[in-house]
Amino acid sequence: MSRDHVAINRDIWNEDAPHWVDVGARLWAAERPEWGNWGQSDATLALLPEDMSGVQAIELGCGTAYVSGWMARRGAAVTAIDISPAQLATARALAAKHGAEITFIEGNAEATGLPDAAFDFAISEYGASIWCPPEIWLREAWRLLRPGGRLVFLGNHPLSLICAPANGAPNEWHLHRPYKGMWGADWTEVAFEPSGICFNLTMEDWIALFSDIGFRVERYREIYAPDDAQGVRAAIPAEWAKSYPVEQVWYLEKPA
């Protein structure tokens, strides 16, 4: 993939930012976190520690920063970075509304410019986890974490990509793309709901990359749509996502 994904994705998110204001406001106000496109229970997934008092935390690709808001509510000192100034404008407004003290940075999660070993905890939900090449942003996350620090990220399951038609139409019940050599997809010129350039890997390649960097896998979860789900979200039909994992969560640790 040789196109400038950073500039492309920045432009996409600046243009699309107005459509995420209401979603961001709802999630900022949520009593408990709701994860992924289908609003999965925090009690089930537990992406965040319940008590984050004294924790230095960073959200990599924060968007409207509701995840950062949830961490601040749990006591963390939070830094949030995103490449989209329009998304950050919404994030800052919502943080002010909720009285959350968050350090916002306009920048690339692949090269934050922040000091080494500055954080205890890092997270990405549909931020760097899908919009940045894994071999780049995961190494940056490793650099930012202290020994014993943890990284949790949620993004698309590889199976959801190989069942996606090349024209961007909703997922179907058969394979459309090769699994071998998977890197992600360029959605900028598809016929249905064009967006940016996203990244993914095969399961073997994820594991190999974690090992190469030095991360230890603490836990792994595959996410399905809930039984009462209906309709289509992010080009994934509910009925498809009830049978096949639509998202994945990796829970990693940088060994002490």
Rank of each mutant, 00 (worst) to 15 (best):
Phe121Ile: 09
Ala100Phe: 10
Glu34Pro: 01
Glu15Gln: 10
Glu247Asp: 12
Ala241Phe: 04
Asn14Phe: 00
Val21Tyr: 05
Pro165Arg: 03
Ile223Gln: 06
Ile213Ser: 06
Gly99Phe: 09
Pro170Met: 07
Arg74Trp: 07
Cys62Ala: 13
Val23His: 14
Phe119Ser: 02
Leu175Trp: 15
Trp142Asp: 00
Ala118Thr: 04
Val246Trp: 00
Thr202Met: 10
Ala118Gly: 07
Ala128Pro: 04
Ala77Leu: 14
Phe153Met: 02
Gly168Pro: 02
Met71Tyr: 11
Ala256His: 01
Arg143Thr: 03
Trp35Leu: 09
Asn171Gly: 11
Ala80Met: 13
Leu88Cys: 08
His157Ser: 02
Tyr251Pro: 01
Pro226Asn: 11
Trp70Glu: 11
Asn167Thr: 05
Glu59Trp: 04
Pro33Gln: 08
Leu27Arg: 10
Glu110Gln: 12
Arg74Glu: 07
Gly61Pro: 04
Ser211Arg: 14
Asp228Gly: 09
Trp20Gly: 02
His5Ser: 15
Pro85Asn: 12
Leu209Ser: 10
Tyr224Ile: 08
Trp70Pro: 01
Ile8Thr: 12
Tyr224Arg: 13
Ala93Ser: 08
Gly155Ala: 05
Asp120His: 12
Pro115Ser: 12
Gly181Trp: 12
Trp70Met: 08
Ala80Val: 10
Trp137Asp: 03
Phe121Leu: 09
His98Met: 06
Ala96Tyr: 01
Met52Cys: 14
Phe199Val: 05
Asn156Ser: 06
Arg143Phe: 02
Ala235Tyr: 01
Gly63Pro: 04
Ala76Met: 15
Tyr66Met: 03
Gly196Glu: 14
Arg32Gly: 09
Leu45Gln: 12
